[in-house]
Write a protein that binds this DNA or RNA. Structure first.
Lengths: 272, 272
DNA sequence: CCTTTTGTTTCATATTATGGAATTTATATA
DNA sequence: TATATAAATTCCATAATATGAAACAAAAGG
């Protein structure tokens, strides 16, 4: 996810979030004060004070021996609340369950978050497949992978270009995706109405996805399947796309701002 | 979870975390600036600045119309990382899967976090049962419910009393638990070696749990089943306790500080 | 045991966050 | 549609807060 470091009239907060990101992205065994100081380019004392305040609040945990910091339990609690709250996950859960049960495939709900696509929920099918985004909470730049691509493709053209401009560097990290290739994929997605990956990003693992759109805002999420590419057939694609479209059609009215008072008070998650 | 408001040399952070907690605990439709100002007893402008900085960083999301704040996608991402990282969840995942598959029961992994017990992972069995802690991320004060109780009971006596002292007010919120009752439950748990709830906290829903302990620190987690109390039998209890103990026995060596270099570099999650 | 490295505490300083007031924007009412 | 009310946002002089250099303490390494 993009590491904004905005001067937002709250320097201390900017620094705290930066440190959380560094801990999140750092060594799996936890980060030492020294490493964090260096990476964040902060003074030892300052860094120490922030880290310990975060630990105090449960946002970070310190080892028993107190020499390494890692993400804390409060983040787990807040994260679970963020996912379950009102919004996409709750709204789409029945659809996700149905799709997974009827198809037996791994089914994914992705949401847009600024320039990224985050996995909000996932139901595993009969096969355990490696997906691009991994489990819940995993993310990819908008454009990478079918769930993500289906959102990018259906954004307003100007916004799409802005996102692409910002995302190119990160997209370049995927050897399977050149600029031309992605352009072609976007065009295909628009004309077909769904995004398809035949197994090029994660070898052997294919995916289909359909965007969930809100009138003014554009796509806010996507619903899709992850499938062993060996099993992929055009008949299957057709059938699955139809199933996804049906579910999306029954979800979208709940997200349309005009209908808000008429439908449930659900709101969408993942908007800036 | 206890709302520490420690003057930790980082006022701004204290305030930011307080606001996150208020948003997390507040109305499911999101919190307005006004409401948050009042509850946090902060100046409107100050509050506004902090909330927007948090939103800027993705820790909060603002509605499309920008009048309500709710938990942001970044919390979901960080929360997932906190859960998956090295530590209890990964370490216990195989055990959890085995226990659930072999018994068909809802299986829970709880971790200690200060004075609380947090649900770190959960595998649903054949029945969908309402549990005390709900899903992942849910928490209860130490002492409430078998998973939580099994940890409290096996803490060092002095520490246990300190925790109890702090927790009484919150425990009082559970009508099924009087002081005497909890004292009795703790004694029972110690003598039996496992915690049992026959369905008194959530009517009709029983639970068994066994603590996961680390040599110096004491219990850091617990593994347990949630069962329809109607189906509970003493034979079943015996069998399930044995299954839990077997798994715990194979987990504990990985957590023992002495063995750390010998075993995997897994560390525990949820220590203060 | 001594040396080096890493973590913690202190405190005078100035940078940063603060909050009262003014302005803009949205919502409710006539 | 106009008007009143309330909420959100921006501004800026002020003071309180976070800062970081340095001194200190505690581990790790030799």
């Amino acid at each position: 996810m993009t590491n904004h470091t905005p001067k937002s009239g709250a320097q201390l907060l900017d620094r705290a979030v930066l440190l959380l990101d560094l801990v999140a992205g750092g060594s799996r065994e936890g980060m030492t004060l020294k490493a964090l100081c260096e990476q964040a380019e902060l003074n030892k004392a300052t860094c120490h004070r922030i880290l310990n305040s975060l630990a105090e609040h449960g946002m970070l945990d310190k080892d028993p021996d107190g020499r390494r910091y890692r993400l804390g339990t409060k983040l787990l609690v807040l994260g679970a609340k963020a996912a379950n709250g009102p919004g996409l996950r709750s709204l789409c859960q029945p659809a996700l369950t149905r799709l997974c049960q009827e198809s037996g495939e791994t089914t994914m709900l992705m949401a847009r978050d600024r320039d990224d696509s985050v996995c909000i929920d996932r139901h595993d099918g009969s096969f355990l497949l490696q997906t691009l985004t991994g489990s819940i909470g995993g993310y990819v730049p908008l454009g990478v992978g079918p769930g993500s691509l289906s959102m990018l493709a259906f954004m307003a053209a100007d916004e799409r270009e802005e996102v692409l401009e910002r995302n190119w560097p990160r997209i370049a990290a995927y050897p399977a995706l050149t600029r031309d290739k992605l352009r072609r994929l976007i065009d295909e997605t628009i004309s077909q109405g769904y995004a398809l990956d035949r197994g090029e990003l994660v070898p052997g693992v294919a995916g289909i996805a359909v965007p969930i759109r809100v009138a003014e805002t554009g796509p806010v999420a996507s619903l899709g399947f992850t499938i062993l590419s060996a099993r992929l057939s055009s008949e299957m694609i057709e059938r699955y796309v139809q199933a996804l479209r049906d579910e999306v059609a029954s979800i979208e009215p709940h997200l349309n701002p005009l209908d808000r008072r008429l439908t449930s008070p659900e709101r969408i998650l993942g908007q800036s």
